[in-house]
């Protein structure tokens, strides 16, 4: 008897027996195909809760993805704190929104940032929560509804100049930590609200912190304490995702208190398993552009098998799925997991 995607996704976190590993994501996975079917432009789905929810549901409806995730862009938290977003409505090709006006303009403003009391009512937080609720009503019985936040350090990078932030990590880690601690509070508050709105699981994306960027020493000093605080204070299921190079810090990531760790293609899964052992849940690590967009269905199958055989517990893309990924590739991803997700799942067969 086959399980519902929702039970398969959530059952794993609850320690229940599930029939196979799931194929889903904690990050954006809307496709151009989905947008076209609805007649939406990408630039307009970020500011309309109905369009956001409808478009997010297309991945399940079109290729059997086992989740629905909103929002898509990385500006929601920063906007609620006072930054200004650019949705690129006038640009013909597909672009993700960015922050065009920062909140912190000099290093000494960094420690002056406070989280407003009415944070849940600011910016697009109400809109995202509405989209979550709409998704829950639409397909929430079938699939798991996910949402996510930027990790505190990555969020700080949206609020201030990155050059300054990186240098301050080195020169004034204590002041950086004051800001990040407040941002951690914001994430804790809003994670609870997202859950109330109907989100089944929350992913924290600390993509500013791989070892392409920061040393393991800095990770210990300014990244880990805040992730620990967040994961201690938000309800399960909760996942930590970091893209880029993560093998040097996978042990530290595992100590942050998330229920699962998600990594990208650059991560050597065998090495990760050697470091963290077979027990922690590890998700990954299909290249969302080079494989899902530019590859053939055969390439996708190969990549999915490599992830499964590398020891993942759910097949996830390494970041947002780039929207132009052809449906045949996405179907190949889901089908390969259906085919091998029980037979080749190390956890199930030990």
């Amino acid at each position: 008897m086959s399980m519902k995607p929702r039970d398969r996704v959530l059952g794993l976190f609850e320690g229940k027996e599930v029939d196979r590993m799931a194929c889903y994501s904690g990050m954006g996975n809307v496709t151009t195909a989905g947008l076209e079917q609805l007649g939406y432009k990408f630039a307009e789905v970020h500011t309309d809760p109905v369009k956001m929810a409808n478009s997010a549901a297309t991945s399940y409806k079109l290729f059997g993805y086992e989740c629905a995730v909103v929002p898509y862009d990385m500006c929601v938290e920063a906007e609620a704190l006072g930054c200004v977003m650019n949705a690129y409505e006038d640009v013909a090709h597909l672009l993700y929104p960015t922050i065009k006006e920062k909140l912190i303009h000099s290093p000494d403003e960094m420690t002056k940032v406070t989280i407003p009391d009415n944070i849940a009512g600011r910016g697009r937080f109400p809109l995202v929560m509405e989209a979550i609720s709409l998704l829950k009503k639409d397909i929430g019985d079938e699939v798991a509804i996910g949402s996510w936040f930027l990790g505190p350090f990555t969020l700080a990078g949206q609020l201030m100049d990155l050059n300054d932030l990186f240098k301050l990590v080195f020169k004034k880690p204590n002041e950086v930590n004051i800001l990040l601690d407040r941002l951690a509070d914001l994430i804790i508050t809003m994670a609870a609200r997202y859950r109330e709105a109907g989100a089944d699981y929350i992913t924290i994306r600390e993509m500013g912190a791989p070892t392409d960027v920061l040393s393991p020493r800095s990770f210990r000093q300014v990244i880990k304490p805040h992730l620990e605080k967040i994961f201690k204070n938000i309800p399960s299921p909760k996942i930590l995702h970091i893209c880029g190079d993560t093998n040097l810090i996978i042990g530290l990531m595992n100590e942050c208190g998330a229920d699962a760790i998600s990594v990208e293609t650059k991560n050597d899964l065998a090495k990760s398993r050697a470091t963290i052992g077979s027990e922690p849940l590890l998700f990954g690590h299909i290249d969302g552009y080079n494989v899902l967009c530019n590859g053939t269905p055969e390439d996708v199958e190969k990549a999915v098998l490599a992830s499964i055989e590398g020891g993942v517990d759910a097949v996830w893309p390494s970041c947002d799925i780039w929207p132009t990924a052809p449906l045949e590739n996405l179907r190949a991803m889901v089908d390969t997991v259906k085919k091998y997700g029980a037979e080749k799942w190390a956890r199930k067969n030990r």
Partner: peptide
């Protein structure tokens, strides 16, 4: 060699 990271490079550039 992963002895230096981005903050270090930025300070070298300064």
């Amino acid at each position: 060699k992963q002895e230096y990271f981005v903050p270090e490079l930025l300070m070298c550039a300064d």
